[in-house]
């Protein structure tokens, strides 16, 4: 209304693809840093879940050594799942999501940047914390490299797949439990190969095959999951 007439024909400067990507990522990272407790919750949960197993099953080192790869992986998987619900929730509540969908920018990139920022705030810290849990559960030192590498390749896939579930349920009030129902079946292949990689590292078998499969799943996820997330967001916001 009160815009000067001379501005009418001027198209505002469009940020490039990379600029858009970094802007979205920076915004999400900054928002995450402003809410530190949300940042710590998945990590604390990860630590607590892992400490339940020695208490609930057996504190024997020889026994814990055997179940350690699976327990750390299941813990990381559940911690990621727990943090998924908040990915689009606040944006949906305050209307930012609607504005993002209306903007002329490719949703694919926006979504990818959001998921990457989310991974940097959950998957990456979980990966860095995993060796500590490995020590707590008497995982042999040979297994540590396998643990960190498999989590490094596997947790981004978990974030990407989880984001599909988060996008599908963002419009629902009771989204939390439903996400787990939708996403857990899709997490199973990642879990199998992730825990398999750690097991292989412990027994001294070559890791290459497992890591290649995890990498292939990640590549597939990066290429296809943002399409599904974008479609799911459009459905959730319009419905």
């Amino acid at each position: 209304m009160n815009q000067p007439a001379s501005n009418a024909g001027v198209v505002p400067a469009q940020p490039g693809m990379a600029g858009l990507f970094w802007a979205v990522m920076k915004r999400d990272l900054m928002l995450a840093f402003r809410r530190r407790s949300d940042l710590l919750n998945p990590l604390v949960f990860f630590l607590m879940v892992a400490s339940l197993f020695p208490l609930g099953i057996s504190p024997e080192p020889t026994f814990l050594e055997q179940i350690a790869p699976g327990v750390v992986w299941v813990g990381a998987l559940l911690a990621t799942l727990l943090s998924m619900d908040s990915l689009f929730r606040s944006d949906f509540d305050d209307g930012t999501l609607e504005q993002t969908l209306l903007s002329p920018q490719p949703l694919f990139l926006v979504v990818l940047a959001k998921v990457l920022a989310h991974w940097a705030m959950t998957g990456l810290p979980l990966t860095l914390m995993a060796p500590l849990l490995g020590v707590m559960l008497f995982l042999p030192t040979e297994g540590m490299s396998g643990l960190v590498l498999s989590l490094l390749l596997g947790t981004p896939t978990l974030s990407l797949v989880g984001a599909i579930g988060a996008a599908l349920t963002v419009g629902l009030r009771k989204g939390g439990v439903l996400i787990s129902l939708l996403v857990l079946p899709l997490y199973i292949p990642v879990l199998i190969f992730g825990a398999g990689a750690v097991q292989a590292a412990v027994t001294g078998l070559p890791l290459g095959g497992y890591l290649s499969l995890l990498g292939a799943m990640l590549a597939l996820g990066v290429a296809l999951a943002p399409l599904a997330i974008a479609a799911a967001l459009r459905i959730s916001v319009s419905g």
Partner: peptide, 14 residues
């Protein structure tokens, strides 16, 4: 309508 679209996306992912 929304439910059908959302489940279709999920079915395609699965």
């Amino acid at each position: 309508t929304t439910a059908s679209q959302a489940t279709s996306v999920l079915a395609l992912v699965g």
